[in-house]
């Protein structure tokens, strides 16, 4: 249950959302990715209204499918497709989307090769160039999550969301995933990260939101919120966390 959630971001900004389990962080990300339908409110990106609870036209299946591509989502439990190799996991959705395009019908082979080389470049970027032909079960949790990141990037979303990307990983593997996410921070890549890694949130983010009970309790500069929180609830929450090296 979320109430009165409102925030804005600039292009290229990184926003971290922190808060205890059940505070609504994941629900918020799921709303942004159209996996949950909010009862009220609107989502706007780059001047376009992607969702408006008061306007049913924004909620049609076909529309939603196009608009959700503005967002990418990396899940806590990776959700790789087990029957495909790492490379195919990254390529599948891009290829299915390409099939609707006239250029695909004109030259299938060229399109396939372009998609494949882009996917390989992405896997290389997340440090998995030597594991492209492995199936998910042959990869460690950290490697699976890095494939999932490459898969989300393949669709070139405007905003990439991470839902506790390291919560299913042990501390050693957490580090490798956090390093990859940090390396993604560029001038034009906008990211929203739900995380329990406080040190990471402080170092990577431009903005931090602390949520509790479905509302935003505190929001602003990462150093301010993580090192000098104003609200009592934020202080209590942060007192329980230790930092992980990454």
């Amino acid at each position: 249950m979320l109430r009165d959630i409102s925030f804005t971001m600039e292009k290229g900004e990184v926003l971290s959302i922190i808060g205890s389990s059940g505070s609504g962080k994941t629900t918020l990300l799921r709303c942004l990715n159209f996996l949950e339908r909010p009862d009220g409110g609107a989502i706007r990106v780059g001047g376009e209204t992607l969702f408006d609870a008061a306007d049913p036209a924004t909620q049609r299946e076909r529309e939603v499918r196009r608009k959700r591509l503005r967002f990418g989502l990396v899940f806590q439990s990776f959700n790789l497709f087990p029957q495909y190799t790492a490379l195919k996991n990254v390529m599948l959705a891009v290829e299915l989307l390409a099939k609707d395009q006239p250029e695909y019908r004109a030259d299938r082979r060229a399109v396939h090769e372009r998609i494949e080389s882009e996917a390989k470049a992405l896997l290389d970027m997340v440090g998995l160039s030597n594991r492209m032909d492995n199936y998910p079960w042959q990869l460690s949790g950290g490697q699976q999550q890095r494939v999932a990141i490459a898969r989300a990037l393949a669709l070139k979303p405007d905003i990439l969301c991470f839902d506790e990307p390291t919560s299913a990983l042990d501390p050693e593997l957490t580090g490798e995933v956090l390093r990859v996410i940090r390396s993604l921070k560029t001038d034009d890549r906008t990211m929203i990260i739900v995380t329990h890694e406080m040190g990471f949130a402080r170092d990577v983010s431009d903005q931090v939101i602390f949520m509790d009970g479905g509302v935003i309790v505190e929001q602003g500069d990462p150093n301010e919120i993580i090192n000098n929180p104003r609200e009592e609830r934020t202080k209590q929450f942060l007192a329980r966390y230790q930092e992980t090296e990454y």
């Binding site: 159209f34 499918r65 959700r68 967002f71 959700n79 790789l80 959705a93 669709l155």
Partner: peptide, 8 residues
């Protein structure tokens, strides 16, 4: 859900 967020 993974398929949905990937626009399938």
């Amino acid at each position: 859900e993974a398929g949905l967020v990937l626009g399938m």
